[in-house]
């Protein structure tokens, strides 16, 4: 049995969170997601975080473990269980695949649901500037999203995943933290550097088109069969240029950020929009198109089975 999307939630702007970082945003949206579904935190068998830019660049524990505690998925409070076949618990970890993290996470969780290792999984993602004013060219707006997956009882769910990398373009977008002179006094600090080449957006579009062609060669579908497209929202200008090449503007879920780009949460924000306006539930074939540094493209085909719902 494939995994189906049970709920999606997103936080696209967070004025009331003030200076709070990615962990607070992501925890908040994860709580909303569970509340909207009526799902107990302890029913989550697996929690995966795919955000990249986190508070103070925390390296350990996994950010997912910090979120797990904040949403209250604490084993000793659980009345039922999943992992260890009877021993209470949620397993949490982080997955990093840049802008394609969401699709990689969906594929991973789909697999764990298919093999019966978990019944429900919560995929969360969020980015915010890790240390205020300690980054160069950080253009991502604070945003977070959560997607709740569960076993599909009908034919609805994920049908196919495809990930491709184009390492010949790995330098077109690179980000790292290094100890360098910073600020007015030029004192050494751990600074986040983001380097995006001028042709990065065009390369992303070029790689995506190549991957889409390959994807449809491997399926019995054609592009015309796609009812809804959920794309990455970064880099800036990507969706616009992709629509220009592909057409199908009506099928694209387009959301606009006024405060910067939405990074790893971008596709989930686009998904949330279609979840709210009913387009997701009324579409048969839904294609997720994600792109990120590497360059990596990740596609996922989701199908709503109207006959068995």
């Amino acid at each position: 049995m494939a995994a189906k999307i049970q709920m999606v939630n997103a936080l696209t702007s967070a004025p009331r969170f003030g200076g709070k970082g990615a962990i607070a945003l992501t925890s908040q949206v994860a709580k909303h997601c569970l509340k909207d579904t009526g799902c107990s935190p302890n029913d989550i068998g697996m929690l995966v975080n795919t955000g990249v830019y986190r508070d103070s660049h925390i390296a350990e524990p996994a950010i997912a473990a910090l979120i797990q505690r904040k949403i209250g998925a604490l084993p000793q409070q659980s009345s039922n269980s999943e992992i260890w076949d009877g021993l209470n618990g949620t397993s949490s970890f982080d997955l990093n695949n840049g802008g394609c993290g969401l699709v990689s996470g969906l594929q991973l969780m789909d697999g764990f649901i298919q093999t019966g290792k978990i019944k429900r999984g919560l995929l969360v993602t969020g980015d915010a500037e890790p240390i205020k004013n300690h980054s160069k060219s950080f253009a991502f707006a604070p945003a977070a999203a959560a997607v709740l997956l569960s076993k599909s009882d009908s034919g609805s769910g994920f049908v196919k995943f495809q990930t491709r990398t184009f390492p010949e373009f790995k330098q077109s977008f690179e980000s790292h933290v290094s100890w360098t002179p910073w600020g007015l006094l030029r004192r050494n600090r751990n600074v986040l550097w983001i380097n995006q080449q001028d042709n990065y957006v065009d390369l992303c579009v070029q790689c995506t088109l190549h991957s889409i062609n390959q994807f449809f060669k491997e399926t019995d579908l054609q592009l015309d069969d796609i009812d809804l497209i959920i794309p990455s929202q970064s880099p800036k200008g990507y969706v616009h240029k992709l629509i220009k090449q592909m057409g199908m503007a009506d099928q694209f879920s387009q959301v606009e950020s006024k405060k910067g780009e939405w990074h790893t949460a971008g596709p989930a924000i686009a998904l949330h929009r279609t979840w709210q306006d009913g387009r997701f539930k009324n579409s048969g074939n839904i294609l997720f198109i994600c792109v990120g540094a590497g360059i990596t493209t990740a596609l996922a085909l989701y199908r709503n089975d109207f006959y068995h719902e």
């Binding site: 660049h57 350990e60 996994a62 797990q68 505690r69 084993p75 000793q76 397993s91 240390i131 100890w179």
Partner: peptide, 21 residues
Amino acid sequence: DFTTLAQYNHLCIGRQSRTSA
């Protein structure tokens, strides 16, 4: 297999230093 006992997540934290590399 593995499980996370997140109530103890504060017992070991590694993060970027503000004063050294």
